[in-house]
Every structure is written in C-alpha cells, then in structure tokens.
Design a protein around this nucleic acid. Structure first.
Length: 556
RNA sequence: GCGCUCGUAGCUCAGCGGAUAGAGCAACGGACUUCUAAUCCGUCGGUCGCAGGUUCGAAUCCUGCCGGGCGCGCCA
C-alpha cells in the first residue's frame, strides 16, 4: 500500500460515502493526497479530505470523517482509522502492507521513482551559458549542479529534455577578450575595459604556440586571430571543466549561427507581423510594455547593429521552432531584471508567457573558508571558479552542496564542513548509507544469506517500528521526484535522501533489526526480510544520488 | 524613487493552506569485544521581522510597514 494508492483509496471511500448519502459527487476533487504526520500518534498517514469537503457538502467535517473512517476500515490494508481535531483522518496501516514496498522497490530497481508525470512535455533547459571570455565562475557553478540535476529529474518524470549552453561568441565582450589576449601577448597591460587574471596570459601563450607568427600580423588581423583561436581554446577549457564536473549539454548553441542564418531578421519579421514592433529615432523597438515590461526594448540600434536582446528573441524563436514548448532559463540573481522583458518577448511572439517560458533565478553562492568568503582565485584573479570549487570540495560534495538548497536562497558553502567526515556533512551522511548497505550486502553474500526470489520475501516480518519508518521514508521517494520535477526544485530530493539516511542509520543501530546473523545463529526469514529492506534502501539512495549527479560509493 | 527577492532556534537551513513549527551544528549528558561509531540516543533551545486581512484553520495566501540583497543603458 503506497501513499498514492492510499490516497486513491481515500478518494474512492469518499465517493462511496457521497453516493450512499445522496451528496453531489461533483464536489469531489479529481485527486487527493495523504500526509505523513510528524507525530507518530497520528498514525502512518493522515487525510484532510473531510475538512475540505465538509463545508462544501453541507455536512459537519467530523461527521463526514466518521463515515469516511468506517468506509476506509473495510479495506484489508487499513488497520485502524482515528478522527482527531476538526476532522483529521489518522490512518494506521497494517505494517506488513507497508513492508511490501521493499519488494516493489527492488523489482523496479534503477527505474524506481520514474514516472510519466511530465510525459509528452518537451522542455528546453538553458543554463551556465557563460561567455567564453574566462573560466566558469561561481554563479555558473550553481546552475551547472542544479540545472544538470534538474535535467535528470525531468527525464525521470517522463519529460523530453534538451539541455543547452548558449555560447555567446558574437559580442563586445568577445572583442575585449581578444584585445586583452593581444595586449598580454605583446607584454602590454590589459586594456582598460578588458580582462585581467592569469588565465589571459595562459591563453595568449597557447594562441601563440598555435599561430607562432601572430604578432607579425597587423593589429586587426592579429586581434582576429586571438579572437578565433582564443575563444576556441577558452571554450574547450570550459567544456572540459564541465565534463570533469559531470555536466554535458545536449546542445552547445553558437550565437554566431543565429546571425549567419539570418534568424535575427526572421525574429524581427515575426514580431512585426504580430504588431509589436515600432521604429523611433532610427532604431527598431519591441513594445514589451504591452505585456508588463517596465520599458520598451531596442532590437536594432540606430547604427544598424543588433542588440543582444534581438539575439535573445531569435534564440527563443529557434528553440520554439525546434519543438520545445517550455523554455527554461536559469539566471543569476544579478540578471533578474531580465524576467520582465523575456516574458514580454514571449508574449509578443504570441506565446503564453506563463507556460512557454520559465525563468529560474539563483541567488548568490559564497565559498567560505574560516568564516570568510573566498574571493580570490589564482587563475581568474577576482572570482571563484568551477575548478576552485572542485579543488576545495571534490565533485560529489560540490554538486551535493549546491543541489541541496533552494535556488532562491543565498548560500554559504563552508569548505571545512563539506570536506569533513562527520554527521554534519550531509553528503557523507547520505553516502555513508550507500557504503553501509553495500557492506552489508557483501557480508550477506559471504555468509550465504540471499534475498532469494519474490516468493521468499516475507513482508510480515518487517514490522518493527524502525523498519516501518524506514519503509515509509522510502515510499516518499517517487512522489518527491515528480513533485521536485514539477516545481523545478531538485533540493527536495536531497532532503528526502537525508531523511532516508537517518531512518536507515536508526534501523541499522537497532539490535532487533540486525540483518546478518550474529555469531553462530542460523539464518532466518527475518534476516532475509531485512536484507530486502537493506537492498531496497541502497537502490533508493543510489537512484536519488544519481539524480543529483553524485556517486553512491560501495566503500568509504 | 520604481521593481524583484529574502527575513523561521545562538549558527546553517527545511517546511510554503492543516494538528503541539522540524533537522543538523553549537552547549550539556549517554551508547563502541560494531553488520563500517563517517553512526545512534537524550536534554536545552522559537512573539516563524512587525501590523492588519482572507478562512473552519496562516510560517505558508493578500495588503502595508521595517530590515538585508539585487536590478533599473540604442551595455553584454
């Protein structure tokens, strides 16, 4: 009896009650859910359906609750139903019914938690998209971890996902980058509006080794060479560091291609057809204020150059034309001013800004050592880079640390905490369960304790409260995955894994729940049943960590 | 000034319409001839920024205020 099945049972019980009493069944919701009360005395699950329906149906909530309870208690998996307060239904299940989850989990294996919640949705996720003018810095790192986790989550929920890195290779920033490389190669100081940092010298040197005579060219050609070769090198480096971080994009999209294919003009034409374009002072504008933006935006400047925003429009249209009905953008807090214009732009194309475009804003991240935010990086000069992060914490801890918090809260990542081997380090706490369960599995194998096949599983032997609590936590997993996917919030998965880890450690430490036989004890069905639970736990922990891009070690 | 966002235990954060608001850390006290103590158990700790409103019920939704962060270019 999973929570989802129980919720459906509650709903059908409500339907039965409504029918026998001649109440209007149209008042019933299409779907309901059950809660997990914090207080164990309130049962395994609770429903608030009676309170929600009481007033609408003109029946006192407690009276409705009574009728529902009587109906529910007919179900064989339901042990007892209590009524509390204004009409809570506190449901206690037969623990053996809860225990069946261990079998379901192991039957599903790596697919446990997958669903079709978002089946049929085509979702484009764009994140990182750092300019190839330097290493990926701290804001991009957060989205690399969260965006990649989100892509895995959405896929687990059945969506078709395309991840995308927008490679901004056609702007003034790139000019500055090229001129900075050129200056560095000549031994000149960096241009006033250019880039500093040791990496500029490294890239400049690398360009010269690929094009030894570059400094003999006239300035324009030399800068062009630095641009072309330098951007390629920088981009290769960004890709490599993301790859080391476990993040690979389905598409690396070049802004240059939008220009080359005339897509900016096409976007402009489309917007003009929709009636939202006007010309003033020699410039071409999009009337985004028609859809709530605080000012209109220029698409093409009076000097004939396209704005960056025009490229944004073309890129959005390109994504839509490739069949993505949901375009998700993940931006840093310093870009939240874009939300209004992006939503308005979608509306100007005739799209639904509430559905076709989603903008997630990630708050600031600080990497903290000894209570002080780290600002300095040897290579980048002033910013903390992806490499700095990974050097300090390792890939697993970095990804977990960034994925376990809501993106809209600013976070400090304390290096000492996230590298410590202790309870206070959540990634170790969770990974330790992976290692412990694997260790138990190895030793079971060694002493001849096997799960056997499904018929050998005896759920009625997993009825200790430690076992039941662990099983209930495991059963929360599928719903947590779908909910996190719908909310675009991977951190709920991490938090559930921590809860499961706590329940497992308590189960493990309970003498009555020993999995392996002690001393010369005989192997019994109880040991076997607990091994099912052990292995089911390992499956869920491994599946959850995989969604976050974190390893589930066999040993620690 | 206008807009966005965040104020929950000493600290770091969950909870985002349900019951007596949770967890870890910190403080104090316990459990190792271990299935890996990288663990577990207990005690202490809160006018959920403030004030109204919506409702059977608000940390959660709405409004105003206070406080922190960020944004408001024919920049990228």
């Amino acid at each position: 009896m999973t929570p989802a099945k129980l919720a459906a049972t509650v709903l059908s019980a409500a339907r039965a009650v409504f029918e026998t009493r001649g109440l209007d069944t149209a008042l019933l919701p299409e779907i309901t859910s059950v809660e997990r009360p914090r207080n164990l005395e309130h049962g395994d699950y609770a429903s608030t359906l009676a309170m929600q329906l009481g007033k609408k149906a003109g029946v006192a909530p407690r009276e409705l609750a009574q009728a529902l309870a009587a109906e529910l208690e007919k179900h064989p998996a339901v042990k007892e139903v209590g009524i509390a307060g204004p009409g809570f239904l506190n449901i206690r299940l037969d623990p053996a019914e809860i225990a069946k989850a261990a079998r379901d989990i192991l039957v599903a294996g790596a697919n446990y938690g997958h669903s079709d919640t978002l089946a049929g949705e085509r979702i484009n996720l764009e994140f990182v998209s750092a300019n190839p003018t330097g290493p990926v810095h701290i804001g991009g790192v957060r989205w690399a971890a969260v965006g990649d986790a989100l892509s895995r989550l959405l896929r687990a929920a059945g969506a078709q996902v395309g991840t995308e890195y927008y490679f901004n290779d056609a702007g003034a920033q790139i000019d500055r980058f090229a001129r900075s490389l050129y200056a560095s190669a000549k031994g000149d100081p960096a241009p006033e509006d250019g880039y500093g940092g040791a990496y500029i010298a490294e890239i400049a040197t690398a360009v010269r080794s690929q094009a030894p005579d570059v400094l003999d060219l006239d300035e324009a050609e030399a800068v062009e060479t630095f641009r072309r070769v330098g951007v390629d090198l920088m981009f290769a480096e960004i890709k490599a560091s993301l790859d080391d971080f476990g993040v690979n994009f389905d598409t690396y999209f070049n802004e240059k291609d939008l220009h080359a294919r005339g897509e900016l003009q096409q976007a402009l034409d489309r917007l003009r057809e929709q009636g939202h374009v006007f010309d003033t002072d020699g410039a071409v504008w999009l009337r985004t204020t028609d859809f709530g933006d605080d000012k209109d935006r220029v698409l093409r400047k009076s000097d004939g150059d396209w704005t960056y925003f025009a490229a944004d429009c073309a890129y959005y249209l390109d994504k839509r034309n490739r069949g993505f009905e949901r375009c998700v953008y993940m931006l840093g807090a310093d870009h939240h001013g874009y939300v209004g214009r992006m939503k308005a732009m979608a509306a100007c194309f005739g799209d639904d800004p509430e559905k076709n475009i989603e903008i997630l804003i990630g708050q600031l991240v600080n990497l903290v050592r000894d209570g002080e935010p780290m600002r300095m990086s040897k290579r980048a000069g002033t910013v903390v880079t992806l490499e700095d992060f990974v050097d300090a914490l390792g890939v697993d801890a970095t990804r977990y640390a960034l994925a376990r918090y809501s993106s809209d809260s600013p976070i400090d990542i304390d290096i000492d905490l996230w590298t410590s081997a202790s309870r206070e380090n959540p990634v170790y706490y969770v990974q330790y369960v992976a290692a412990r369960t694997a260790s138990v599995a190895r030793q079971s194998e060694a002493v001849g304790l096997r799960r056997g096949d499904e018929a050998d599983f005896r759920p009625e032997l997993l009825v200790n409260s430690k076992e039941t609590e662990l099983l209930k936590a495991l059963e929360e997993y599928p719903e947590t995955v779908s909910r996190s996917a719908e909310l675009r919030e991977p951190h709920h998965v991490a938090r559930l894994l921590e809860k499961i880890a706590g329940e497992y450690h308590r189960f493990y430490d309970e003498p009555a729940c020993r999995i392996l036989p002690k001393g010369d004890e005989q192997i019994g069905d109880g040991n076997r049943a607990r091994l099912w639970l052990n292995d089911a736990t390992r499956t869920v922990i491994a599946n959850g960590l995989a969604l976050l891009g974190v390893s589930a070690p066999e040993r620690m």
